[in-house]
Simulated scan of single mutants.
Amino acid sequence: MPQKRKTQHRRRRRTKKQKEKQRVYIIIAIVVVVILGIFGYQRYRQNQKTDAMNLVQEEHNAFIKKVAPEAIDLGHQYGVLPSITIGQAILESDWGNSTLASKYNNYFGIKGTDPNNTVVLQTKEYTDGQWVTINGRFRSYSDFRDSMKDHAKLLVNGTTWNSAQYQQVISSKDYIEAAVSLQTDGYATDPGYTTKIIRVIQKYDLMKYDKGIK
């Protein structure tokens, strides 16, 4: 009888140790799963971020490919550097995504007065050292190429009050000089306009489209 009790006691101890080992294994397994899950989630987020960046890059490249041929043709016709045309189209239209660009094919914020071919939209202008929101009347086009042509003609012919307003832009020998002239000639009120134009031209190597224009 005592021998039987001793055997049962040993069995209980072995069973207890086995349960403790199982508990340890389960805890280890849970920890491993959690760690792998964390790393897997981080990898997933990183892949998502990379995919999003690649998608944006593809969209940007597609926009440049879309407007570049017309910019080159206009460069030969009017002497406007294609890099400037493309760079302005990018900034003014937010890569073709602004309401004015996506709905009304106006890539340059060109304004008008005729109610039959214009729309009134809110826009921001830099006045007296601060940004203010105003309502502006902008041209509406059936095709984005028409807005690009109007942009080139505006730079060549100037405004109704100053036909020579953008002659410095037209006579500029390179994109840097032209970008500075856009600012000084009053094309945009944004004090950082020149810097933004130059940055986007350099980032996307848009100056390569200027070859043979001047």
Rank of each mutant, 00 (worst) to 15 (best):
R13C: 05
T15Y: 10
K17F: 04
Y25N: 13
Y25C: 06
Y25L: 13
I26M: 13
I27N: 07
A29W: 07
I30M: 13
I30V: 15
I30N: 08
V32W: 11
V32S: 13
V33D: 14
V33S: 15
F39V: 15
Q46F: 11
D51Q: 13
N54A: 09
F63Y: 15
I64T: 12
A68N: 12
P69N: 14
E70D: 13
E70S: 12
A71N: 09
I72Q: 09
H76S: 10
Y78N: 11
G79N: 10
V80M: 13
I90K: 05
L91N: 05
E92T: 06
E92A: 05
S93T: 07
W95L: 12
S102M: 10
N106Y: 01
N106E: 01
N106K: 00
G109I: 00
I110A: 04
G112F: 02
T113P: 02
D114Q: 06
P115G: 02
P115I: 02
P115L: 01
N116W: 00
V120W: 00
L121S: 08
T123E: 12
T123I: 05
D128W: 08
G129T: 08
W131V: 12
W131R: 07
T133F: 03
Y141H: 06
Y141A: 05
S142F: 05
D143H: 08
S147M: 04
M148A: 01
A152G: 05
L154Q: 05
L154E: 04
